[in-house]
Amino acid sequence: MALLKVLLLLGLGVSVNSAVSLQKRIIGGQNCADTERLYHVRIESTSEKSTTICGGSLIHPQWILTGASCLELGQGRRDQHTFLKVHPRTAQGTSQVIVQPPVLYREDSRMHEIILLKLPTPVTDVPVAKLPDCSKRLKIGDTVQLAGEGDTTTGPNDRRLRSGRIAKHLQCVDMKVGLVSQSRSFGHIFRVEEPNKDACYGDYGSAVVFNDMVYGVISVETSHYACKKPVSIMDVCEYIGWIKTTIAHK
């Protein structure tokens, strides 16, 4: 919990007073195909003063995989809405309110930046994302796909904007793996990068896909300027046992 509070204070959760904000965005990407990422979920956490938005993936009819700092777990939070069928935009979206606490992952008393959310009602009309084949781990140079719903532009000197605009179409971008299997204080990660391409705050929690399977969850270790450093990704294979056990027993 202490880690979450620090991250939220640093602005890794996206929130603004009296408005909806989506700050992390895919840069240098293109419209995702209407037939892919149907499992993409938009998550909104509402307090008295703000709403925070990020992404997630439906990996089971009743479970969403996302990033820990997606959620405002601190004082003043009222509820958490999940919006399904947000892609393609022609779909008739639905929403549910999360009522159960998120399932956190802890290791050596540290909370990692990956969580599971349980929906009150199973979803029967959305295809679920495929979990990775962890017998075939990512290698340096592999191409993965990131996605997000935010604005695609930057400000002067490529400074990240706080426009709050949601893209008219879910954005996808291909990036190459530059680092694999690194342990950090907030969890197990790999890193991806590509010239003039990036992901920012509002994409946090969205899936990183390889061979149509979710190998990662977008994390945040970033500067105020776009395309200056690789994107950190939570390595789903490092958590696959916890994910499967949680889904099976709760």
Rank of each mutant, 00 (worst) to 15 (best):
M213N: 13
V86S: 03
S181F: 10
N157Y: 11
L119M: 06
S109W: 08
S219R: 02
L146G: 10
L9T: 10
I59N: 05
L9R: 15
G141C: 04
M234H: 06
V214P: 00
E36H: 09
I247V: 15
L117G: 03
T143L: 15
W63G: 08
D79I: 06
L179M: 13
V208H: 01
L104C: 05
V208W: 01
P127G: 05
I233T: 09
H224G: 11
G74A: 08
G11K: 05
I98S: 05
W63D: 00
K244E: 12
S232G: 12
C200L: 14
D174W: 01
V144T: 13
T124F: 11
Y239I: 08
T94Y: 07
C172E: 07
G93C: 00
G216P: 07
D34M: 05
R159G: 10
L58T: 00
L65G: 02
G205V: 04
F83W: 07
H169N: 13
K130N: 14
M1D: 13
D125Q: 01
V208G: 01
T46I: 10
H60W: 09
A68V: 04
R110A: 11
R191V: 09
V180I: 15
K24N: 12
A68I: 03
I43M: 01
C134W: 04
I166M: 13
D198F: 05
V128A: 11
S135V: 01
T121Q: 14
T46L: 15
P88D: 02
T46Y: 06
H169Y: 13
D142A: 10
E193H: 15
L58V: 04
N31T: 12
C237Q: 06
K136V: 15
H87N: 08
L38Q: 15
E193G: 15
G216Q: 01
E48F: 15
Q171R: 09
K24I: 15
D235T: 10
I43R: 04
I115P: 01
V123I: 15
V231S: 13
L4V: 13
T51H: 08
